[in-house]
Simulated assay, not measured.
Amino acid sequence: MCSVFLKVDNLNTYYSKLHAIWDISFNVEQGEIVTLIGSNGAGKSTLLKTISGTLKPKTGSIAYNGTDIAGEKPSKIVRSGLVLCPEGRQIFPKMTVQENLRMGAYICKSKGEMEAGYDRNFALFPILKERYRQEAGTLSGGEQQMLAIGRALMSSPKLLMLDEPSLGLSPVLTETVFQLIQEINAQGVTILLVEQNAVMALSIANRGYLLSSGHIQAKGTGEELLNSDEILAGYLG
């Protein structure tokens, strides 16, 4: 790992008067897979939304590639190379696979750049090429998740944030999605992964952070957290 790519320092975010995340500090090194684990309501999705600009932090800093992006517009953050693939896929069900992918390519500067994005996606997700002109709402759950990730990849992210990519998927499809995450990482994309399937997430992560009630409760390498008796007893069961 060569450098700090994302550095979050003393971040606090509110929903109206509700203090959702408290003094969160963590970092992601370039080339890593870092995972954030925790139960529902722990603050994981809130944290990703704050980093991506869809929520504004009350206090704290978010340094991405050396620049503080806290409070910046989401469109500017995407153009800088930091992209969020949201929880629940949020595809456009009445649009085709092609049209959904094109929605992720709005920052592409040329047709050639867009075509390169399609080629990259179809190499990773051959099923999307087969379903190219099919309405996205008719895809299976696993295919919709691949489409959601593919749409995010159309922006050529340097750091890809994935929010619950295995949500609602069978064990077999979950394993496939995690293999694809590793392949995307191997292509040079840094990954920040939010996931309730903690065992799978930690098994592929360089490092992990456990969130609880808006606080970071534990941190370590993926292996350290997987082998922690405290984490096993208190969270992994």
Rank of each mutant, 00 (worst) to 15 (best):
L160K: 08
A148V: 11
M114H: 03
T46P: 01
E113T: 02
P57V: 07
P74G: 10
T59Q: 11
F122Q: 01
Q144H: 10
S52V: 05
S61Q: 12
G142N: 04
V83E: 00
K94L: 14
D68L: 03
F125Y: 07
M146D: 11
E99S: 05
E72V: 05
S75H: 13
Y132V: 00
E29M: 15
L162V: 10
K17T: 15
V78M: 07
G71E: 06
K109Q: 14
I107Y: 08
V78L: 11
I33L: 00
L153Y: 12
E99Y: 06
A136F: 05
R131P: 09
K158H: 13
I127T: 14
G71D: 10
G41C: 03
A148G: 09
G142V: 08
S52T: 09
G150S: 15
Q30K: 15
M103G: 11
M161Q: 08
G31Q: 04
F92Y: 09
N40H: 02
S61R: 11
V97E: 03
Q98V: 10
A70T: 08
P157V: 12
L47E: 00
N121V: 15
Q145C: 05
E29A: 11
G137K: 04
P126Y: 00
P74V: 11
K94S: 13
S110T: 13
G137I: 13
L139M: 15
D23G: 13
M114Y: 09
R120P: 00
L124T: 12
G31R: 00
K56D: 11
L124C: 08
V83P: 02
T67E: 14
T59N: 14
I24Y: 01
K94W: 03
Y118P: 07
S39A: 14
S39G: 06
F125A: 05
G150K: 00
M154S: 07
K76H: 09
A42K: 00
L82E: 02
T59P: 03
F122E: 09
K129I: 06
R133N: 15
E32P: 05
F26H: 03
E99N: 02
N27T: 08
N100F: 05
E29D: 12
K158P: 07
Q145F: 01
T138I: 14
M103H: 07
S80C: 04
C85T: 09
T35N: 03
E115S: 10
R79V: 10
E72F: 13
M95I: 04
K111Q: 08
F125P: 04
M161G: 12
P93F: 02
R102D: 14
R133Q: 11
T59A: 14
G43T: 05
K111C: 03
Y118R: 00
V78Q: 04
S75C: 05
F125C: 06
G142A: 06
G117V: 06
V83C: 00
S16I: 04
E130K: 13
T54G: 07
L82F: 02
